[in-house]
Design a protein around this nucleic acid. Structure first.
Lengths: 159, 159
DNA sequence: TCAGAAAAGTATCCTAGTAAACTATTTCGC
DNA sequence: GCGAAATAGTTTACTAGGATACTTTTCTGA
């Protein structure tokens, strides 16, 4: 997939001042990069990053409300509806309208959904533990720690 | 009246194991977060993050080829075509087909484009220097440094 | 007690970005 | 030289995700 040769000379001469100091630009690059690593390791077959995180959260939190799920994953409710509907169509999740508040929707994996997660989780966990080649293990720990702190996650200091 | 903060409790109790250790998830959160900070500071009027980086790169590198621009910004060529066309329609950039290679397209800001950048750059630079509240200055430096290293940017160690 | 206000989710429309196939040039191998 | 392959960009058709406006249900205050 890499086609980066030939005009390296020209490309290397590009003046990227401002940008290399922009946290916005760097986080974008980082996300593109993690997506590439993801698909490199896991191929185009299994669930995508967003689907994976949704399923994993669903497995660990059966009965979670759809809105809470969206909020935790920083996905807009409108989009979460689509995601969940798609999972429902594939038979992976069950939508339950509880009696005590019939506006809300509680979600849980079906047996098929749990099977699907069980099938794909090992590859995902392995992918997650695979160290990106440009960073040391300790740098990764620091990076994750700083990212959590940056986005306002209760700093679970495991570093 | 009995349990008036039910959903707060529920939301806080969500088990996010796996996810809080996933670099993919964390980089996504980080990008969403930087976008929010961006629009918080700069409003919906001026250029968006992607447009800004394109314009800034164009200003610093007049005559840059469209493909090089795309490659540097990690934007797909197909999408870069649209971006550039939109800038052209607004009179901000000029497309030049050089004689020595008439397949390629060289780009440069017009006078109007430079004016537009000059108008919006101060707010952008100020935004960039505004420290995100959850990190210290030194943590930001480390974070940027690690992100650069993660995405494979020639480590320009200014930290 | 009942008229609004708020909450939860959904439907509709729209933009950003991608993939794959296509056009136009240039270069390479013989 | 000339046909094949590579390069640069574009077009078309699609997907992910977001904004906004709406239904339904629940809660609140006079």
């Amino acid at each position: 997939m890499q086609d980066l040769d030939v005009k390296d000379t020209v490309a290397d001469e590009v003046d990227m001042r401002d940008l290399v100091d922009s946290l916005g630009f760097l986080t974008r690059l980082a996300q593109v990069h993690t997506y590439e690593l993801f698909f490199e390791d896991l191929g185009d077959d299994g669930p995508r990053p967003g689907e994976f995180s949704t399923l994993i959260l669903l497995e660990r939190n059966p009965g979670i409300r759809q809105g809470v799920l969206a909020q935790k994953l920083r996905i807009k409710p409108a989009h979460m509806t689509k995601l969940v509907r798609a999972f429902e169509d594939r038979g992976f999740v069950e939508r339950i309208i509880p009696d005590h508040d019939r506006r809300s929707v509680e979600l849980a994996l079906t047996a098929l959904g749990r099977k699907y997660v069980a099938e794909h989780r090992p590859a995902f966990l392995e992918h997650e533990t695979r160290k990106p080649p440009t960073l040391t293990a300790s740098e990764i720990r620091t990076l994750k720690h700083l990212l959590r702190k940056y986005v306002g996650m209760a700093a679970e200091d495991r570093s």
